[in-house]
Amino acid sequence: MENQRKPRILCLHGFRTSADILKQQIGKWPETLLHNLDLVFLDGPFPAQGKSGVEAIFGPPYYEWFQANQDFSEYTNFEECLLYIEDYMLKHGPFDGFLGFSQGVALKKVPKIKFVIIISGGKFGGFKFGKPKLAANAFSSPIHCPSLHFIGETDILKADGIGLLDSFVEPVVIHHPEGHTVPRLDEKGVETMLKFIDKIQNLP
């Protein structure tokens, strides 16, 4: 990969965390992998409206990509979030892929991304909650965008991550023994990820 341009990846953090927190979490990956990636980290558009699950480990500020009512049965500002991401990509792109979050229905003003890397992900709303219309539309047909998924054996949302695999055509999966977090990568995980990136760079 030394003679190729590094894939530029827009990294979107998890619920009520931040770009800096995700950067610290991914920073524990081996340099042999990080050296081959151009990672750009973006904060969500909204300050966190409640308690963060990482407060005992990482300090504030914390951000959200969307806002919801107390029981998460209704979402607000979902479209605004997608426009926020799209505007950032227009100003700071182009990007080859996403890490952390995938939504291609509304991002129509920017070049189509080549791949997504999804860590502890699931369909928007998961099995418990409803989906905004844009998110529901995104999963109405198979997604052909190449995807790499991280699924933790002790992740409380493991079932959601497995369910998401059905929406993608030929997803690549890295299983790890940790929970709902950015996992450390062993030698096999790094090899899988490098092969995935190499495959993306060699697409027509």
Rank of each mutant, 00 (worst) to 15 (best):
S140W: 04
G121M: 13
A48Y: 03
F46T: 01
I57K: 13
I119C: 14
L185C: 09
K188P: 00
S102H: 11
A56M: 07
E74N: 12
E191W: 05
E55C: 04
M193Y: 14
C145H: 05
V116P: 07
N202P: 04
E153V: 04
P30A: 08
E80R: 13
A19N: 05
P146F: 05
E74H: 13
G59H: 02
T32E: 15
E187Q: 14
Q24G: 01
I21R: 01
N202G: 07
C81Q: 08
T192R: 06
E2S: 14
G163T: 03
F139N: 02
F150D: 06
L37T: 02
L185Q: 01
W29K: 05
G93F: 09
V190K: 01
L107I: 06
W29P: 01
R5Q: 13
G125I: 00
Q67S: 12
P47R: 11
D20L: 02
F15C: 01
K133A: 13
A136R: 14
L37P: 04
L165V: 04
P111C: 07
P171M: 06
K128L: 10
Q49A: 08
G97I: 07
K131H: 09
C145Y: 03
F129K: 13
G189R: 01
L157D: 07
P204Y: 01
I143Q: 07
T76D: 14
K128W: 06
N202T: 10
D38R: 12
D38Q: 11
H35E: 14
H144Q: 10
I21G: 01
K6P: 08
I113T: 05
M89S: 00
F66S: 08
W29R: 00
H175I: 00
I143A: 06
I9P: 04
G179L: 00
T76I: 14
A136K: 15
I26D: 05
I26V: 15
P171Q: 09
D160M: 14
Y75E: 11
K131E: 09
L42D: 05
V169S: 14
F95S: 05
L42R: 02
L99S: 02
E170F: 08
H149I: 05
E86T: 04
S73I: 00
L42V: 03
D155Q: 10
N69T: 03
M193H: 06
K158I: 03
L39T: 02
T76K: 15
F168S: 09
A48L: 03
L185M: 09
K109Q: 11
S140M: 11
P183I: 00
S18Y: 02
N137C: 04
F168C: 10
E80T: 08
G152D: 02
D186G: 15
N69E: 11
G121A: 12
S147C: 12
V116T: 15
L164E: 00
F78G: 02
S73E: 10
S102N: 06
F66D: 01
H13I: 03
F41W: 02
G152H: 04
G179H: 01
Q201W: 02
L107F: 11
Q25N: 08
V105F: 13
L83I: 05
T181E: 06
G93A: 09
P30T: 03
